[in-house]
C-alpha cells in the first residue's frame, strides 16, 4: 500500500511546498524583476524628467541651476515657444479628424461585411502597415511627395496640376512642394497613424450587435437614421480610443516634421533639439510635460466617454 503522503525528495519539491504555504512569496518573486525594471528605471526616469522641468538654466553660463522654480514653465508662454505648442496641437487635431474620416469606411466594411478570407485579408491589411517599419513608411512618403515624385507625375498626367499648384499656394499650409509643406507633414502623419485608428474602431463596430440594427430597421428607421442614431453612438468609444493613439502619437513625434515639412518646429522636435544641441534640458523637460498634461486631460475625457472598454 502506497503512503498517504509522499516525502519531499528534491529542492524543486521543497520550493513548491514553500510557495504553496506562502503564495505571496511566489507573487513577490514573479513581480520583483519587472517592478525593479519598470518602477525604478522607468518611473525613476520620468520623475527625474519632471524634476528637471522645475530647474532653470543660467542665461550667462548656460549651466543648469538645480533650484526649484517655475521660470522654465513661464518660458513656454513666450510667443516662439507657445507657437510650437499651438502648431502641434492643431496638427494633432486635424490628423485625428482626418484619420477618423479615412478609417471609418475601412473599419465599417471590415466589421460589418467582410467574412472569412476577406476578414483575414482586411485584418492583415491593417496590421502589417501598423507594425512595419516606421522609418521606411516615412521614407516612402519622401519619395511620393518629392517635387519630381509620383504625385506631381500623376497630377501632370491627369492634367490636374492646377489643383496641386492651388493647394501649394494656399497661405500658411502651402509651400514650394508637398514634401516641404504642412500639407505634406499632415499627409504623412495621417498615413502613419491610420492603422491605430482603424483597429479600435473596427473592434467597437464589431461589438454592435446585428440584432440591434435589425430592431432599428424593424421600427421603421431608414438606413441613414439607423447609422446616425444606433451605429455611430455605439461605435463612439472605439473612435475615441483610436483618437487617443493618433492624438498622442502626433503630439510626441519629431521625426516626421524633421523630414517632411517646412522645418517649423513641433513639440517633439523642440524637446529633441533643446536637450541635444541647445543643452537646455530644463526647457526640454518642460516641453515634454506638455503632451503628458494634454494626454492626461484627453484620457480623463475619454474615460468618461467609456473609451477604455474599447481598448
Amino acid at each position: 500500500m502506497s503512503p498517504a503522503v509522499f516525502p519531499s525528495r528534491s529542492v524543486a519539491s521543497r520550493l513548491t511546498t514553500l510557495f504553496w504555504r506562502h503564495p505571496r512569496l511566489l507573487l513577490g518573486l514573479l513581480l520583483a524583476p519587472p517592478l525593479l525594471w519598470l518602477g525604478l528605471v522607468y518611473l525613476g526616469a520620468l520623475a527625474a524628467l519632471l524634476l528637471q522641468s522645475f530647474y532653470s538654466i543660467d542665461d550667462f553660463s548656460g549651466l543648469i541651476v538645480p533650484e526649484l522654480t517655475l521660470k522654465t514653465y513661464a518660458q513656454l508662454f513666450r510667443p516662439s515657444n507657445f507657437d510650437v505648442i499651438t502648431r502641434t496641437l492643431l496638427m494633432a487635431l486635424s490628423v485625428t479628424v482626418a484619420s477618423g474620416v479615412i478609417a471609418f469606411p475601412v473599419a465599417y466594411y471590415a466589421a460589418r461585411f467582410a467574412r472569412g478570407r476577406w476578414k483575414a485579408a482586411f485584418y492583415l491589411g491593417v496590421m502589417l502597415p501598423l507594425w512595419s517599419s516606421y522609418l521606411v513608411k516615412v521614407y516612402a512618403w519622401k519619395l511620393i511627395l518629392a517635387k519630381e515624385g509620383i504625385v506631381t507625375w500623376a497630377a501632370t498626367a491627369t492634367h490636374t496640376d492646377w489643383l496641386l499648384d492651388a493647394a501649394l499656394s494656399l497661405p500658411g499650409i502651402g509651400g514650394s512642394s508637398l514634401s516641404t509643406s504642412y500639407i505634406g507633414t499632415f499627409l504623412v502623419f495621417c498615413y502613419v497613424w491610420l492603422p491605430y485608428m482603424i483597429l479600435p474602431m473596427q473592434a467597437a463596430l464589431e461589438r454592435v450587435p446585428t440584432s440591434m440594427l435589425e430592431a432599428s430597421a424593424d421600427l421603421g428607421a431608414t438606413a441613414g437614421q439607423t447609422f446616425r442614431t444606433v451605429t455611430l453612438p455605439l461605435a463612439l468609444p472605439g473612435i475615441i480610443a483610436g483618437s487617443i493613439f493618433t492624438f498622442s502619437l502626433t503630439l510626441g513625434d519629431y521625426i516626421i516634421p524633421q523630414i517632411i515639412g517646412n522645418s517649423a518646429s513641433f513639440i517633439g522636435m523642440a524637446v529633441y533639439q533643446l536637450q541635444g544641441t541647445a543643452g537646455n534640458v530644463p526647457l526640454a523637460a518642460a516641453f515634454a510635460v506638455v503632451p503628458i498634461l494634454i494626454m492626461l486631460v484627453y484620457l480623463t475625457l475619454a474615460r468618461r466617454a467609456g473609451a477604455f472598454d474599447a481598448l
Binding site: S2, P3, A4, V5, F6, P7, S8, S13, T16, T17, W20, R21
Partner: peptide
C-alpha cells in the same frame, strides 16, 4: 488528516490523492 497523517503542511503534489 488523510489516513491519520496531518496534511496541514502538505501541498497538493505530495498528497497521494
Amino acid at each position: 488528516r488523510i489516513f491519520g497523517e496531518d496534511v496541514s503542511a502538505v501541498p497538493p503534489h505530495l498528497r497521494n490523492v
